[in-house]
């Protein structure tokens, strides 16, 4: 009897608590206003702060410990979507701060969830200063630097040039020979220009040129990578795979296998490899497309599949489609299918 009564009370208490919790939770979520802000624009490599301020819509009070989730919209391998960057909690002033490192150029779009509606921030990212900041390392030693290398190598070459001059001396140091025949020959050699334009002079000249080149290289060294004048230097240009693997200048493109080779490159560029594997071997996302017939490949590429985007003719030309197929046909052989 007491057991049954206890059970009833417990149920009632649980229900009440549950309703209160549910109600307050709903009330909290429904009545937040969230304001988000970010710098006008950012520079590549910089870490910026995204801030979100949360107020209770009803009372206007700042909300503490509210959780906000930051997403970034990305497109990869032909598919787009939001990926979670992380979370941040508000402090007693209702302000949440999220550190965000800018790793690519272009417009960044950040979605912040937590309020009634997702808030969206959008800002451009441009080239800033030098990207790579080297840690102290050897520079900890006072005075260590490129000049030491320059000095050491420079002095070695100076000594070698001194040797070269000694060799020139050797070539010029022949006084009148003791017998007449030799003296004549000597004369002849001198008149044919061997006196100045001889091996010794040439060797020395070459050494001077090489030494000059080396010193020039060392002196130019800090400025070779545009790190002193980043303006107009687009780093992102080298950051993505473009075109095919084939090196047209080097005859690969003229080969019989060229079509398949180009196809291999396209397979990566169009993102097929992201789902089907670099060698078209199939992944957990999608099976291997290597054994598909030409018509089927065409059909699938143009119309898509569940889980696979379609590619229109503007995006992926017929020639490219053929090249991809050539690659798939080759892959079929390699995969033994």
């Amino acid at each position: 009897m007491t057991v049954r009564r206890l059970g009833r009370w417990a149920t009632i208490v649980l229900l009440v608590v549950g309703f209160v919790l549910l109600g307050s939770g709903g009330a909290l979520a429904d009545h937040w206003t969230v304001e988000v802000s970010a710098p006008e624009e950012g520079a590549l490599g910089e870490t910026i702060q995204l801030t979100a301020t949360v107020h209770d819509a009803a009372t206007g009070e700042p909300v503490e410990s509210a959780e906000l989730v930051f997403f970034s919209s990305v497109a990869f391998a032909g598919v787009g979507g939001d990926i979670e960057l992380g979370e941040a909690l508000t402090n007693d002033l209702g302000v949440a701060v999220f550190d965000y490192e800018l790793r690519k150029l272009g417009t960044h779009t950040i979605t912040i969830e937590g309020g009634d509606e997702p808030n969206i921030l959008s800002f451009p990212v441009t080239i800033g200063g030098q990207l790579y900041q080297s840690p102290e390392g050897i520079n900890l030693i006072p005075g260590a630097g490129g000049w030491v290398v320059t000095l050491v190598i420079g002095s070695i070459w100076v000594i070698m040039i001194i040797v070269g001059v000694a060799v020139i001396r050797v070539s010029r140091g022949s006084p009148p020979a003791d017998n007449e025949a030799e003296a004549e020959e000597d004369q002849q050699e001198r008149s044919t220009g061997t006196k100045w334009l001889n091996t010794a002079t040439m060797v020395t000249a070459v050494m001077v040129i090489v030494a000059g080149g080396i010193v020039a290289l060392l002196i130019r060294s800090p400025n070779t990578h545009h790190n002193r004048d980043p303006v107009g230097y687009d780093r992102s240009a080298v950051a993505f795979v473009e075109g095919a693997y084939a090196y047209p200048d080097f005859g690969l493109a003229d080969d019989a296998a060229a079509e398949a080779e180009i196809g291999r490159g396209l397979f990566v560029t169009f993102g097929c490899a992201g789902c089907h594997g670099v060698d078209a071997e199939g992944t957990t996302t999608a099976k291997s497309p290597a054994s598909a017939s030409y018509d089927w490949v065409r059909q699938v590429i143009r119309n898509g599949q569940p889980g696979m985007p379609s590619y229109s003719e503007q995006e992926l030309s017929d020639t490219q489609l053929n090249e991809i197929f050539a690659f798939l046909a080759e892959a079929r052989g390699e995969l033994g299918g």
Partner: peptide, 28 residues
């Protein structure tokens, strides 16, 4: 041989310069 032998006659002057060049190089 004539070009490479740079007028070598074996005079004491030449020997001196050559020895000097060799001894710098052998250490360097």
């Amino acid at each position: 041989y004539r070009i490479l032998a740079i007028n070598w006659r074996g005079t004491s002057d030449q020997k001196r310069h050559l020895r000097r060049a060799i001894s710098i190089m052998m250490i360097l």
